[in-house]
Amino acid sequence: MKTRPIRIDVLASLLLLSAIGLPSAAWAETVTLTCLGTETAHYNPGMTFTPQPIAFSVNGLLAPCAGIPLGVTSASYGTSGVANLSCEILSGVAPTPPLTVHWSDGSTSVIQPTTVVTQRPVGEVVRIESGHVASGRFLGAATVRTVTLLQTQLDACTTSGVESVGGPVVLEVVKLL
């Protein structure tokens, strides 16, 4: 019984993986992007000083993006979920759903936050998330998203509840090869 050389089996396997569309080395690239933008968050029901399950949705628009690769000039993202939230100051306790980022060149990245620090003074949100790109473009890159979301109804935490907040966001994505 004859056996084929291992090289041919490896080559055939690589061709098969490429044909079925598994990620290729094209995603292995240097990235040093800093994107500025705005983010809004909506809560239903509105946040009060009483912790309770609240549905939230978050949307962000990032422009401009500066750095490498040069073809990525803007992005957008969104996420949603349900979490036990309130207007109280909370640190280190926050939902951490993945963010799907849609880059201006048509590619996407899924960012998974791993360390989150959140403060909620009177319904405003100051949040710093560090994490990594878990799939898609820039796979394995380190990420930091810093968000400051302000609310304009200062008495909302004691009355109808904070239903939305918005403000500046900075997203940094870094991977050096």
Rank of each mutant, 00 (worst) to 15 (best):
residue 160 S to H: 11
residue 17 L to Y: 15
residue 73 T to V: 13
residue 136 G to S: 06
residue 54 I to N: 10
residue 136 G to A: 05
residue 81 G to C: 10
residue 46 G to V: 09
residue 93 V to A: 09
residue 69 P to S: 09
residue 158 T to L: 07
residue 152 T to G: 11
residue 31 V to D: 03
residue 149 L to K: 04
residue 113 P to I: 01
residue 144 V to L: 02
residue 39 E to L: 02
residue 156 A to Y: 04
residue 154 L to H: 15
residue 82 V to W: 05
residue 67 G to N: 00
residue 115 T to N: 13
residue 131 G to N: 05
residue 98 P to F: 10
residue 53 P to Q: 11
residue 87 C to A: 06
residue 81 G to Y: 10
residue 114 T to A: 12
residue 83 A to E: 05
residue 126 V to P: 01
residue 31 V to T: 14
residue 46 G to W: 04
residue 94 A to S: 15
residue 22 L to T: 13
residue 170 V to E: 07
residue 56 F to K: 06
residue 51 P to N: 00
residue 23 P to Y: 02
residue 10 V to T: 11
residue 5 P to M: 02
residue 46 G to K: 00
residue 119 Q to V: 12
residue 146 T to N: 00
residue 137 R to M: 07
residue 12 A to P: 09
residue 154 L to G: 15
residue 25 A to I: 03
residue 37 G to Y: 03
residue 117 V to Q: 08
residue 28 A to T: 02
residue 10 V to Q: 07
residue 61 L to G: 12
residue 59 N to A: 11
residue 31 V to P: 09
residue 96 T to H: 08
residue 139 L to N: 06
residue 153 Q to H: 09
residue 114 T to C: 13
residue 132 H to R: 14
residue 59 N to W: 04
residue 142 A to M: 05
residue 28 A to E: 03
residue 82 V to G: 04
residue 111 I to W: 03
residue 54 I to K: 03
residue 119 Q to S: 14
residue 132 H to A: 12
residue 93 V to L: 14
residue 168 P to M: 11
residue 42 H to R: 15
residue 20 I to H: 02
residue 51 P to V: 04
residue 20 I to E: 00
